[in-house]
């Protein structure tokens, strides 16, 4: 278990906001606390005051979850095409690749968690809100197939705004692709765990995200089919506090566990152990 030093923090009144050096400080959207970014990183990008889980990218997720140096990426060469010839989509992709350093919205590969080998996939919401086009669908499908080939469990960290509009029906059909391919993992008796992070909505939540044998979510994560703003516009009323949060889904029987980021690694390791037995761990947890 990793122990973190209690980070120092200061509270800055609202009106001083513009004087803060851009990029060094973050403001907690839930409690308003202004946090030094370095301190936040030490606390796994979780607010030290209220426990708000900031969104994190692939790199942080790997660092916080997998054994150091254990991850090997696969299928990195799979990237989006422009199957519909959608206007400005290639430009959009180029721009996002430039700013994020990512080639697509999901990174997949193999690694270990406290010694337990697993196939893993991590979605990154900075990449067009981790929307699912053909490349994302294909990478997820191949991760499932790899788990079957290698007789390993599969853990997917989900974040997504849904199907990628610019790939139209090709994107929508990735919902079917990623769902149907899971029949293999079921037939092989292999474990499939999904970790739903902020936000998990629409076409991705309504396909492979909700099909885990065990479904975990990070505290406070937005999870749903239709996004809250669209629901509010449609029903013309405010949604109740906490609607579509991880905790709300757990109350309604839709997910198994809400696990804070600081406990994610050991929780996943325990789930892997419970499905494989202790002797399967390569290291010593």
């Amino acid at each position: 278990m990793i122990v973190f030093k209690k980070p120092k923090y200061v509270t800055v009144p609202q009106e001083d906001k513009k004087e803060m050096p851009e990029g060094l400080w973050s403001k907690c959207p839930k409690c308003g606390l202004i946090i030094y970014k370095k301190d936040m990183a030490k606390n796994l990008h979780v607010c030290i005051k209220c426990g708000y889980h900031f969104r994190i990218g692939v790199e942080e997720r790997l660092q916080f979850t997998l054994d150091e140096g254990s991850f090997v990426e696969c299928d990195a060469e799979l990237v989006a095409d422009n199957p519909l010839g959608f206007p400005n989509y290639p430009e959009k992709l180029a721009e996002v690749r430039q700013t994020t350093g990512l080639s697509e919205a999901v990174v997949t590969g193999e690694g270990s968690i406290l010694g337990y080998r697993t196939v893993v996939g991590i979605m990154d919401s900075r990449f067009i809100m981790a929307s699912m086009g053909a490349a994302v669908g294909e990478k997820v499908a191949r991760a499932v197939e790899r788990a079957c080939e290698r007789q390993l469990p599969l853990i997917l960290f989900i974040a997504s705004g849904g199907a990628r509009m610019q790939e139209g029906m090709v994107a929508l059909m990735q919902m079917a692709k990623t769902a149907v391919v899971l029949k293999h993992i079921n037939a092989a008796g292999l474990l499939y765990v999904t970790v739903l992070t902020d936000p998990t909505t629409a076409g991705v939540s309504a396909s492979f995200a909700m099909l885990g044998d065990i479904i975990i979510a990070e505290p406070g994560a937005l999870i749903g089919f239709t996004g809250p703003r669209v629901i509010e516009q449609t029903i013309k009323q405010k949604l109740p506090e906490g609607f579509q949060t991880a905790e709300f889904l757990q109350q309604h029987g839709m997910i198994d566990l809400v696990v804070p980021r600081c406990k994610m690694r050991e929780t996943l390791a325990r789930i892997l152990m419970l499905h494989q037995g202790r002797e399967h761990s390569a290291g010593s947890p």
């Binding site: 995200a209 749903g224 089919f225 239709t226 029903i235 609607f243």
Partner: peptide, 16 residues
Amino acid sequence: CGIGAEERGQSQAIAQ
């Protein structure tokens, strides 16, 4: 799209 649909698992139902 609405409250009841979300409470009863719209995503889960479609995925299944």
